[in-house]
């Protein structure tokens, strides 16, 4: 009896086995487990850091921090993806070709600009909290998506594009039906880079009062509490790894 037969004879075991073979599932479980168990880990951190009077971060619940962190990154990514792809499309069309150079420079500058500096500049204008954080993430996350969109569209093979024109697809039809689908894997890898980058970058939002998984890190750094830093870093790391692995699955599904 061949392997697929075994799987279909015992579907629950087969489904479980398939699930267990997916690293993204494991990483997500680890993230959720860490969120659920950390509040009960005071004894562990007392043992690890005996010199600290309060080794477990309790100012906000880890779940609230994670949800707020994900919300900020999600919102920024939504803007980054739609704006980044739109810009990438625009500068590769005949009408926008002249803007390719300036846009390239601008997005590159956006990325070399330290996100802390964006925060410092945004706070006087719009106040403390989540809003300046989202703006910093947008500025910072735009480059990978814009350049991946330009690279992806540029790498679409010439023959299908010419055929699309030749048999009478409109320029918009050609873009939507031929160019974007063929560029999708490259664009997706740009989105992946941007989102992962911003999961890490979002932590500094806590310096201007945004609620993120960076809050324990920032407070631990300023208050000389390495246990807080460890708790924040552990959660951010697991969040980033789990997200990255889901992108990995998405990319493979696309191929």
């Amino acid at each position: 009896m061949s392997a697929p037969d075994i799987a279909s004879d015992r579907p629950p075991a087969g489904a479980l086995a398939r699930l267990a073979a997916r690293p993204a599932v494991w990483a997500s479980l680890a993230f959720v487990a860490a969120l659920a168990l950390l509040p009960y880990s005071a004894p562990l951190f007392h043992a690890l850091f005996p010199e600290l009077p309060r080794p477990l971060y309790t100012r906000a619940s880890f779940l609230d921090l994670a949800l707020s962190h994900a919300g900020l990154v999600g919102l920024a990514s939504l803007v980054v993806v739609s704006l980044g792809i739109a810009i990438g499309i625009f500068v590769t069309r005949p009408a926008g070709r002249d803007f390719a150079g300036p846009v390239d420079t601008l997005t590159a500058v956006g990325q070399t600009f330290p996100p802390t500096a964006v925060l410092a500049l945004a706070v006087p204008a719009i106040g403390y909290g989540g809003a300046p954080t989202v703006i910093a993430l947008i500025v910072y996350g735009l480059l990978p998506v814009v350049s991946a969109t330009i690279a992806g569209l540029g790498a679409v093979p010439a023959a299908p594009v010419q055929a699309a024109d030749g048999i009478g697809l409109s320029p918009a039809g050609r873009l939507v039906k031929v160019e974007l689908p063929l560029a999708a894997p490259v664009i997706l890898s740009g989105i992946r880079t941007s989102v992962i980058l911003n999961i890490g970058t979002a932590t500094i939002g806590s310096t201007v009062g945004a609620l993120t998984l960076g809050s324990p890190i920032i407070e631990g750094l300023s208050g000389s509490n390495p246990a807080y830093v460890l708790q924040g870093a552990l959660l951010v790391g697991l969040f980033a790894v789990a997200t990255d692995l889901w992108f990995d699955e998405l990319e493979r599904a696309l191929h």
Binding site: P157, A158, A159, P160, V161, Q162, A163, A164, D165, G166, I167, G168, L169, S170, K177, V178, P181, L182
Partner: peptide, 20 residues
């Protein structure tokens, strides 16, 4: 041009099927 091309069957030299 788009309407014109829909009226004209076109076999391109490099074939150019849509791979997806």
């Amino acid at each position: 041009p788009v309407a014109l091309r829909r009226r004209i069957g076109y076999v391109i030299q490099s074939i150019g099927l849509f791979p997806h």
